[in-house]
Design a binder for these strands. Structure first.
Length: 415
DNA sequence: TCTGGGGTCCTAGGACCC
DNA sequence: TCTGGGGTCCTAGGACCC
């Protein structure tokens, strides 16, 4: 594709599809249950996918259309959801299954264009610009895609068509489920300006509150807002907001590599923990998990961070830059413990996590011969463990200390 | 039986250097 | 003998997404 300096295609308007799975987690669980011989389709009853309340994971991850009618929203507590709808049925998530279904869809969508971006587990952008000789009628194509997914895979999607990613995404959000919508540049005023400001992509709770205080309640209000005026309240974000409201977006559909810019794990603990030794055990397990993922993408991290959320729901985090990029569990764990010592406020921890960032491919370093030899050895041991784990799945081999912790956790649970 | 988990991006402010 | 100013790097915190 050819673009001018503004990013516009010089071959005319771009054609972007956004494919969005309707109530993804719930639909996929429904498909799984039906496959297993279950007669009931949980999409047709008041139901949600939710975490385990005993482990303090009790929030709504996805909801059925009927549950939505009861006012249930994603991320609210199951406790509150049940109050809104007493005979609500709650089903546990199955993330492995979700990835399988997601891959199925991605593989199918990839047959239409190589310029495809997997935006999340249940959303893809397709750039079909310049394919008009092959596809001729894009609306017809969208229906074909939508119907194929429904009939062959058993779940429904919305397809949004626009001249850029923003409009395609806004379009797929219009009416659900199992629908095709367009939001071409010449339809922006009619189809988008009347919508509440909250519906605009990237306008969340905080921005919408500020905008409403300024008397901007519809997307159309924002679209005609003066940049200088809005800049006083939103700084550089002002231009972005006004552009979005006008359906202007130059970002490209970018096929993402399997490598991410950061890797993190965090977990809400079944009970608050203020015992430092216990915290260290958890951090060790988490460090091993993220560093293994980092080694899998054959990279090294320059930044290590520990994140906390205490019993009062206050979050904080502390990070450290490494002089030598690392990817071994042992090296990273040393830093994690240093961070813990410097940053933990001795408060009762509800949620804790480890994050790795600032990746590089090479380990440029100047170390003494002694250190180098030592580190190579650690690297070798971990490489062997990684290979075994890859072969036999899961964490067949891990440092003895982690196994002990795993055992302790199991004991705790059965108590 | 209150409030998950994995990401990306931006900004303010401090430290440090010239 | 009253405190410049620009650039860079780094961190904490926050907003937003699914």
């Amino acid at each position: 594709m050819f673009y001018n300096l503004n990013g516009d295609s010089i071959m005319g308007e771009r054609i972007i599809f956004h494919v969005d799975v309707n109530n993804a987690f719930l639909s996929w669980t429904a498909v799984k249950m039906l496959n297993e011989g279950e007669k009931l389709d949980i999409r047709k009853i008041p139901s949600v996918i939710g975490g385990n309340e005993k482990d303090r994971h009790g929030i709504v991850l996805a909801k059925s259309p009927i549950a939505k009618k009861f006012g249930i929203v994603t991320a609210e507590t199951l406790y509150s959801a049940r109050k809104k709808c007493p005979n609500l049925k709650i089903f546990p998530p199955d993330f492995r299954w979700y990835y399988k279904e997601s891959n199925l869809m991605y593989k199918y969508l990839s047959t239409f264009t190589p310029i495809i971006e997997r935006y999340s587990v249940d959303e893809c952008f397709l750039d079909l610009t310049g394919t008009n000789l092959i596809y001729k009628d894009y609306i017809k194509l969208a229906y074909e895609i939508k119907n194929h997914i429904r009939d062959e895979f058993g779940f429904t999607v919305n397809v949004g068509i626009g001249n850029n990613k923003l409009c395609a995404k806004m379009a797929s959000d219009f009416e659900k489920p199992d629908k095709v919508h367009t939001l071409y540049n010449n339809e922006i005023k009619d189809k988008m300006w009347g919508l509440p400001i909250e519906d605009l992509f990237m306008v969340g709770k905080s921005s919408s509150k500020k905008l409403r205080e300024l008397g901007i309640s519809k997307i159309g209000d924002l679209a005609v807002c003066k940049e200088n005026y809005l800049r006083k309240y939103f700084k550089n974000q002002a231009v972005f907001l006004i552009n979005s409201a006008n359906g202007i977006d130059y970002s490209k559909v970018e096929p993402r590599s399997s490598k991410s810019d950061s890797i993190s794990v965090s977990e809400t603990l079944p009970y608050d923990v203020s015992d430092k030794e216990k915290i260290k055990e958890i951090l060790f397990r988490q460090t091993d998990e993220v560093s293994r993922a980092l080694r899998e993408q054959e990279q090294f991290a320059k930044t290590v961070a520990v994140t906390y959320k205490n019993s009062l729901f206050q979050s904080y985090q502390h990070q450290m830059k490494l002089s030598v990029p690392a990817n071994s569990t042992t090296d990273i764990y040393k830093v994690v413990i240093q961070i813990l010592d410097e940053s933990w406020k001795d408060d009762a921890i509800r949620n804790i996590g480890v994050r790795l960032a600032d990746f590089c491919n090479n380990r440029v370093e100047q170390v003494s011969i002694f250190n180098e030899v030592k580190e190579k050895k650690t690297g070798k041991i971990e490489e062997i463990a990684d290979n075994i784990n890859k072969k036999y799945g899961g964490a067949s081999v891990m440092p003895a200390s982690i196994k002990v912790i795993g055992k302790m956790n199991r004991n705790k649970k059965s108590n």
